[in-house]
Amino acid sequence: EKTLKIVADSEEEAEALAKELAEKYNLEVTIERNPEEEGKYVITIKIKP
């Protein structure tokens, strides 16, 4: 299993990107607040072998 993390500037941007990735590529995608940067969100994508 591989994990890729993407940082987005807004929750709306994160949700839109996560939804597109999940639907288009059938990936497991989660969104959470970035504890290191206020106002940023981390999109985590898990790629199963």
Rank of each mutant, 00 (worst) to 15 (best):
A16F: 08
E20I: 14
I47V: 06
K46D: 07
T3P: 15
E32Y: 03
R33P: 13
I31F: 04
V42F: 04
N34I: 10
E38D: 11
S10R: 01
V42M: 04
A18D: 00
K19N: 08
N34M: 13
K24T: 11
E37W: 12
S10W: 01
K46T: 14
T30I: 05
E1W: 06
D9E: 09
E36I: 10
K46P: 12
E36P: 08
R33K: 11
Y25N: 04
L27F: 14
T30K: 06
E28C: 09
V29W: 13
I6A: 02
L21N: 00
G39C: 09
L21P: 00
Y25I: 03
L4M: 12
E32F: 04
E28I: 05
E28W: 05
E32Q: 05
Y25F: 03
S10C: 03
E11D: 03
A8E: 01
A22W: 14
I31K: 01
G39L: 03
I31W: 03
L17C: 10
L27M: 11
N34G: 10
L17V: 06
I47C: 15
T3K: 04
E12I: 09
A16D: 06
K24Y: 08
K46C: 03
K48E: 11
A16M: 07
K2G: 15
T3V: 14
E37V: 11
P35T: 12
E20W: 14
A22N: 14
L17N: 01
L17R: 03
V42S: 02
E20C: 15
E15W: 09
S10Y: 02
E36K: 12
A18I: 13
E37K: 10
E13Q: 10
A8R: 09
L21W: 04
T30P: 01
I47N: 03
P35W: 08
N34A: 10
E13H: 12
A16E: 09
I6C: 10
E20N: 14
G39M: 05
A14M: 02
V42G: 01
K19C: 02
E32K: 03
K48V: 13
E28M: 07
E1F: 04
V29F: 13
G39F: 07
L4F: 15
A22M: 14
V42N: 03
S10P: 00
A22C: 11
A16T: 08
E1D: 13
V42Y: 03
T3F: 15
E20S: 13
Y41C: 03
T30S: 10
Y41A: 01
D9L: 03
I6E: 02
A18P: 00
K48S: 11
K24P: 01
G39R: 04
I6H: 02
N26F: 11
I31T: 02
K40W: 03
T30F: 08
I47A: 03
E13D: 05
L27E: 12
Y41M: 03
A8S: 07
E1S: 02
K24W: 12
N34V: 08
A8V: 15
P35Q: 10
K24C: 15
